[in-house]
Write a protein that binds this DNA or RNA. Structure first.
Lengths: 358, 358
DNA sequence: TTGAAAGCGTTACCAG
DNA sequence: CTGGTAACGCTTTCAA
């Protein structure tokens, strides 16, 4: 039954843990009213220095920590000091970087970040959004997976700030922050054309994803502008993971008339294509330009030429928009923000076409 | 006073947003008491079906969303349904994977995850911990940066579950989940020795970091066990970023009697060393074994042999320990959990030593 | 400058 | 099975 006498303090002591001190406890110990304690904690000026001193001592002695939830319940501004992020997958670099950038802005606004992974599962998106709503997050940043976000109708109605990232909202009007997907893809194709390629393959993610669709459009349009026909055998949609991309790339390269260059519309697809090329010993013979940068893209041999999304800027923009709405009184109409992609020339996109067999 | 009649609903409507419905509103509309609404929402069985039906209709009509903060304030179990993570940096793969794994466990416990980056700044750690505490997170997972966590004393006292990851707690007793750093480092060195290396350099992070210290110990001990002397010129501490590692590696390789193998004790240091080797054209001549895996480590040429931490298992273990304490009534004494590293042979660690000039 | 009372949205307790 | 009343920990309102 004895308590450890020397530090450190053990976790899970045999006794029921001590109750947290409340303002009432502090007030009692300091011999003042609860309201005075509140004033001291909130730094309201109108407290006489000696009183303030006594209260502060009581706070320190009791190791008092105010309960923000209780505080916010009564406060006029009704802010919980938390914003929520609905992400594709917290563990992928895009989501992780986005979260980090938003966190930095949030910190400046004295706000914490709660995040969840949706994993391209619409049901999960709805559940997560509901959970965040019931926790009364001050605002939501959403990388949507659902085809329609009308389920957020009631949140819009009560004025919860919403910012969509990567993919625009459907069924509701809200701010969004998007990359210039079509332009970026067109630039990639143009780069390959400028390097004398004519048989350029497209390897893309699920075509139901709006970004994939836009990137494919950029590919199509740029091919057209250069008078190049699109060989349907060189177009592969719906590649969502490395495995699928490896197989698709291998099949393309096994054609009688294989492509001399690959445009891969997404991170994992690029990695899959590179893996396939490497296994065939073709990594220095077939050109590759990928959409989305990835870690160590510059350490590979050849280094990978990519259309990089400016994720930090996307995150910062989204966070800025969100806090503008959280803190502003007058609400402006929703806007769509475009963040330009950056083209990073690093080697794989500058490989010349293999000599054709004519 | 008119409401938009057609979808989509605009964000930032000119009218002041509608007030959220409360249980009181639902009760009034359904013609029942607030308590009955509460029962319906919490799925308590003892509500007559017809009543339940009426209440449910009112809930749907008003788009009522319960306020969890208010609920938790009154509830006996006092859980907020949120756990907090104090991480090194949300955007690095270790932190991101850890977060994701913990999120998965948390989801099964109907709990959300709020996370923050400490950036190796002790002051930031303390501030973040205080913020999480004031939000009354149900438990904390901490990758500590401070040298002493006595500042968490009051949290331990009131029984907030705490789990330390990657580095053990100091100044308090709490659960921890650690990798087998010393063993893993020793295994790396042994591997190099088995491949006939004798001049093996150590490149490590800040020696103040306990994991770096342990990994260095593993290096020392294994060198000793093999009767190999440690040349102080081949030991470089306090390399915390890629830049520093590049410089250090270049210096080592410029020695009259350079190392034939490098053991790098951390992610960024490994990348720096590889960068230096590549720039010198030595990537196929000098062996490298790194601690910590990194994305695409298997796509480089040569692929990188590493001692990989099992981050998913670390995260799952930490989350499991946390929820055991959150949900258990009887508290066991804190434990230290060791998660074994995995040795991944991929190429860079199997390069034989260059012929010495004797 | 200080404090008493009411209230935030919900659940606990105990009658009916 | 249902509801009234008190209470959670804090801020607001208003009076002293």
């Amino acid at each position: 039954m004895s308590v450890e006498e020397n530090a450190p303090v053990p976790q899970g002591a045999p006794h029921p843990p001590v109750r947290r001190a409340t303002m009432r406890d502090v007030a009692a110990l300091a011999g003042v009213s609860i309201k005075t304690v509140s004033r001291v904690i909130n730094g309201v000026s109108s407290v006489a220095p000696p009183l303030r001193e006594k209260v502060q001592q009581a706070i320190d002695q009791l190791e008092f920590q105010p309960n923000l939830a209780a505080s916010n319940l009564r406060r006029t501004d009704r802010r919980t000091g938390q914003i929520a992020l609905l992400l594709e997958d917290l563990s992928n670099p895009y989501s992780a970087t986005l979260t980090r950038t938003i966190e930095d802005v949030a910190r400046a606004h004295n706000t914490l970040v709660v995040a969840g992974s949706v994993d391209e599962d619409p049901q999960r998106e709805i559940e997560l959004a509901r959970a965040f709503t019931q926790h009364r997050a001050d605002g939501l940043v959403i990388v949507p997976t659902t085809s329609d976000q009308a389920y957020l109708h009631s949140e819009v109605r009560v004025g919860t700030p919403l910012v969509f990232v990567d993919r625009p909202p459907r069924g509701i009007l809200a701010d969004s922050v998007l990359s210039t997907n079509t332009d970026g893809a067109a630039q990639a194709v143009r780069h390959l054309v400028d390097h004398a390629h004519r048989r350029i393959a497209y390897l893309g993610d699920y075509s139901s994803i709006s970004t994939a669709e836009q990137r494919f459009r950029g590919y199509q349009e740029e091919m057209g502008r250069n008078g190049l026909p699109i060989d349907p055998r060189l177009v592969r949609h719906d590649l969502h993971d490395i495995e699928a991309a490896v197989s698709a790339a291998r099949e393309l390269l096994a054609l009688d008339d294989p492509p001399t260059a690959l445009f891969t519309s997404q991170n994992l697809v690029t990695i899959g294509a590179l893996t396939a090329l490497r296994s065939l010993g073709l990594q220095h013979r077939v050109a590759v330009v990928g959409f989305d940068d990835f870690p160590l893209g510059d350490l590979l041999d050849p280094a990978v030429t990519v259309v990089a999304q400016d994720v930090p800027r996307i995150g910062a923009t989204a966070a800025r928009l969100l806090f503008e709405r959280i803190e502003a009184s007058d609400q402006l109409p929703p806007r769509e923000h475009l963040v330009p992609t950056r083209f990073l020339v690093r080697g794989s996109g500058e490989i010349p076409p293999l000599d054709d067999v004519r």
